[in-house]
Design a protein around this nucleic acid. Structure first.
Lengths: 374, 374
DNA sequence: CTGTTAGCGCCTTCAT
DNA sequence: ATGAAGGCGCTAACAG
């Protein structure tokens, strides 16, 4: 029925072992023999049986990339960048084994169970590496479960890379680990590498709100992300910090509304903020997509941007520079971070000192923010 | 080292076969026994070995979703929707086998080689189903190669679903296949199902240009996608049709510029169009993202939208309704189509008659288009 | 309902 | 540089 390695061997008049060797290319094989085998492979249209191969070799060439929401370019950009460093340019003659790794992206949809499920799948498949992107869920039980899975993955030989996610969820986390050292880097961890690229969400958010404060705003609404996310918390903390420093700390809670990271949430939350504080002069959104929804709500209520109300976002997604007015936001180098995560996962770049690197966030001031009226 | 099924069996005092049966749940097992086994699984923290399992069973629970550009929400939305029908709600106690399928998305980046590589990977992994999203590349050799791979996948038992891609690339295609029947549905194809959901790109594009024509536009520029894509061709043909019917067919070529499906391309192409025809009154873009770039270029050249120049896009991505002015575009029900593709891939929905269903495209007239000046 | 027996297709020491 | 042989961990008939 299906053609196996043995069939190829028979046709090429060599042993199965030889075929395996030319396919994997990790072993010296006479050029002539190789040619013969390759021809047989083509003739028979042979395709390596992945499961069998992985079973025997106890490894696979899969690299998993976990994302919270595949429909969100925030994740798409990171995933695409990471993948560009992994899938590489496949050697000619696809179908062969080739040393190349293959990136697969897994969409958790923000569900803790799914995150765990995919991690298990990847563990099952003996994935060569796993990249987790974006904010983590802050439930202690879940964090522990994820940490445990990652630990197992890591000491099963898989590289684990966090991109845009704090390392706290790692086994032992920063708090318990050796100073500046992540567990995977500990002696005994073998070749496993655990690295984390964190975004400066807090700092970025702080500077963004400071910008608004400097412009003279005082009644600033905040549309936060889902409550249980690290990203949400860090950005909110940055906002809080800035407000606190301006003596406005007490007003924050009243003018903060949580919701998912989508356009609709920005719309609804902004309406709610307007209800709570009709004199609002600025809205800071959890991300650019949410900011778009906020703009729509404001316009619908007859507020012009930025004359009546300033609006700011976060992430600097591609469309943000093209909105009218262009959106003031905090730029995260998503592509660069994703690419670096990909390289780390491939072991093609040394892990940063201590296993953790902070990715800077840059304030992008554009037309959607201005001094408040009067 | 790693704990195996045999270890679990030993601890639970049953045979390996029983453990396997409990894990897979496809077989009657006494409740008491099951409990014992499950406890052993938990105690030992056992994780099924995927490769071994797939090898023995000759199938896996993977469903591959191929996308051309994961950073583009067009694909993200479809992939997410498809996945929502596949990943389902995992049974409690992750780590178990569970009948659930797992969706993995593979980003081809629009590269033919990568598309083939991923298809091979999926074939290797004995994927349960494969969903190909978005336009196909029109190179004959490549189409043939893809068709061959899909045929193999299909008769290896995998379901193949095309979402937003014409079935021409299928083995035998529409032209050669039995009337209204796709090869996978032919007798002998076993359980394999091949289905295609095509978007009405041509019709949508035609209506869009007709809308502009009705408004009184005559000098309409077209920013097309990459030349070798079916999506590009179909949309352009629709535009051409409308222009031709208005007696403007000859002008089309001169006012068409090709480029990738991104913001930058829209920007550059629009500048070029303005060079070729300074009196341009409308720009139709290959998709919404491209339209955004077009808007930026027009504004930079001092043209206001829609007073000086009308702009239209395609796809109706979430941000399109929130731009200023809101973008006139053609709505494709990406989420619905993706979800349906997911259901087809799971065999949870009957294939449409003939294996092909056309997904309608709806014209969304918004603020970015208006009658030309004067 | 449960145990026994064979492989699934490949990789990998060992020899040669 | 190549062949021979064993086993990776699991599932799928069979018996009982």
């Amino acid at each position: 029925m299906t053609v196996t390695l043995a069939d190829v061997a028979a046709r090429a008049q060599v042993s199965p072992a030889t075929v395996s060797r030319v396919l994997n290319g990790n072993y010296p094989v006479a050029a002539a023999t190789r040619e013969r085998v390759l021809r047989a492979v083509d003739d028979l249209d042979y395709v390596l049986n992945g499961p069998a191969s992985s079973l025997a070799a106890a490894t696979s060439d899969l690299v998993g990339i976990l994302v919270n929401d595949i429909a969100d370019p925030f994740f798409g950009i990171m995933a695409g960048a990471a993948q560009s460093q992994i899938g590489g340019s496949e050697a000619p003659g696809a179908g062969r084994a080739g040393g190349e790794k293959l990136a697969i992206v897994c969409n958790t949809g923000g569900s803790p169970e799914r995150e765990l499920t995919y991690l298990t799948l990847l563990q099952r498949q003996r994935a060569a590496a796993v990249i987790l992107t974006g904010g983590a869920i802050e439930d202690p039980d879940h964090s522990a479960a994820v940490a445990a899975k990652l630990a197992k993955l890591a000491d099963g030989g898989a590289r684990v890379v966090l991109c845009g996610r704090p390392p706290l969820a790692l086994p032992g986390g920063l708090a318990e680990g050796l100073p500046g050292t992540l567990p995977g880097a500990l002696p005994g961890g073998g070749d496993a590498v655990v690295a984390a690229l964190t975004f400066d969400n807090r700092g970025g958010a702080r500077r963004l709100t400071e910008h608004l404060l400097e412009l003279g705003h005082r009644r600033i609404g905040y549309v936060a992300g889902p409550v249980e996310r690290t990203t949400t918390r860090h950005r909110l903390e940055g906002h809080q910090e800035a407000m606190g420093a301006a003596g406005l700390g007490d007003a924050v809670e009243h003018l903060t509304v949580h919701g998912p990271y989508d356009r609709r949430s920005g719309y609804d939350a902004t309406l709610e903020l307007l209800r709570r504080e009709p004199e609002l002069t600025a809205v800071v959104a959890a991300n650019d997509t949410v900011a778009l929804g906020a703009c729509a709500a404001l316009r619908e209520r007859g507020r012009s941007i930025p004359d009546d109300v300033s609006v700011a976002g976060f992430d600097d997604l591609p469309f943000s520079a093209d909105t009218m007015p262009a959106l003031t936001t905090v730029r995260l180098p998503l592509y660069e971070a994703g690419a670096r995560a990909g390289r780390l996962a491939m072991g093609r770049e040394a892990a940063p000192p201590g296993g953790i690197a902070s990715v800077p966030a840059e304030l992008m001031v554009r037309g959607s923010t201005a001094a408040p009226r009067g």
